[in-house]
Write a protein that binds this DNA or RNA. Structure first.
Lengths: 187, 187
DNA sequence: CGTGATCCTTACGTTCACGTCAGGTTTGAG
DNA sequence: CTCAAACCTGACGTGAACGTAAGGATCACG
């Protein structure tokens, strides 16, 4: 970081990020930026099997991704954050989606026996239900917490108003500070 | 762990856990069990200032807790889990509750100037609002996720039914597996 | 007042989820 | 073809959140 800022163009000359017409050939750095993370994380996720290996990479060559991989990554990060599970558990959960993808693939082919189809769909449904239960539990807990906080908030506001009214008269219920009326509550 | 299982009474002779009439004098192991964690974790939380030091412990003596501490601990664990924040951030968030406790204490004393009261209450309100926003964000995200999962689930079920109907006739829509009608969905 | 279970402090070990650095290779604009 | 920028593979480092083990002090029952 001293005498290397040569390119007077300023920014990095590479990284199209959206240059090509279709949504193909993103490099790992681009994907990372688009998903809001780092290349290292992507490689790590791939390493532990949370993300599939970059599709058909010809040996030691650079990884190339499509927009779909970015979506996948975002979804992974979203689930990790919202469900608060370990990457290992997340991998298990996501295996369900892989299974579903496979189901869809099989469904597109028309040469599968209906019995087999039923099996696959039923399995997928089971996965979905497990996820759904997990999500519902957490969502419920969070709503409970939200409700509690709202109540607490109400009580606090009431106390403020009481205080205002009690020794009021001196000056009218003037705007107490900045954000006054309904800046937050709107259930 | 060889020739020490003497006490024929079977269980540990200590740990009242609910023996005393009031809710006092719990030892760290009891608290841990009641809250579903370990003594080490409790000491750690105390060490980093997430929990207050066991009240008035006479020097190197054992820690003693009351039922209230158990509640506090459960609350901490709940927030940690639901909000998915670091213990450091959680400490910051909880400082708000400490502040609120202090406010309540000051409110009980009657000799505080109203202006000061207002200040305290307003501050507490600010803390609450910050928490509330955080909780609401997460709750909203989780609901979105839940909704998406529900949709996916619906589609899957529809496909199953289609499959049933298509090559049905052979045998009626018999119970596909075990859990059949409305075992999960009830929004 | 002995004694076994529990607790104390101190300190090092561990797992997860990456960060960072080294040394070499690949890529793409010029 | 050149050359800087980005990428590659290892390998080691790191912070958070505890686990675990050592050596000794406390506690409560008998």
């Amino acid at each position: 970081m001293s005498t290397s800022a040569r390119h007077p163009t300023g920014q990095a000359p590479q990284s199209p990020v959206e240059g090509s017409a279709d949504g193909e050939s993103l490099r790992i750095g681009d994907v990372a930026k688009l998903a809001g993370t780092t290349p290292r994380t992507i490689r790590y996720y791939e390493e532990i099997g949370l993300l599939p290996e970059a599709p058909a990479r010809p040996s030691g060559r650079h990884r190339l991704y499509s927009a779909a991989e970015v979506e996948r990554l975002r979804e992974v990060m979203r689930l990790k954050d919202l469900l608060g599970v370990s990457l290992e558990q997340l991998k298990t959960l996501l295996s369900a989606e892989e299974a579903r993808a496979e189901v869809r693939a099989q469904l597109r082919r028309d040469d599968v026996e209906p019995d087999r189809r039923r099996e696959l769909l039923q399995e997928a449904l089971g996965h979905i239900d497990r996820q759904l239960e997990l999500v519902r539990n957490r969502a419920g807990e969070l709503q409970k917490l939200e409700h509690e906080l709202c109540e607490t908030r109400k009580r606090a506001r009431r106390k403020v108003r009481e205080l205002d009214a009690q020794q009021g008269g001196a000056f009218p219920p003037s705007p107490p500070a900045l954000e006054t009326a309904s800046g937050e509550p709107q259930p």
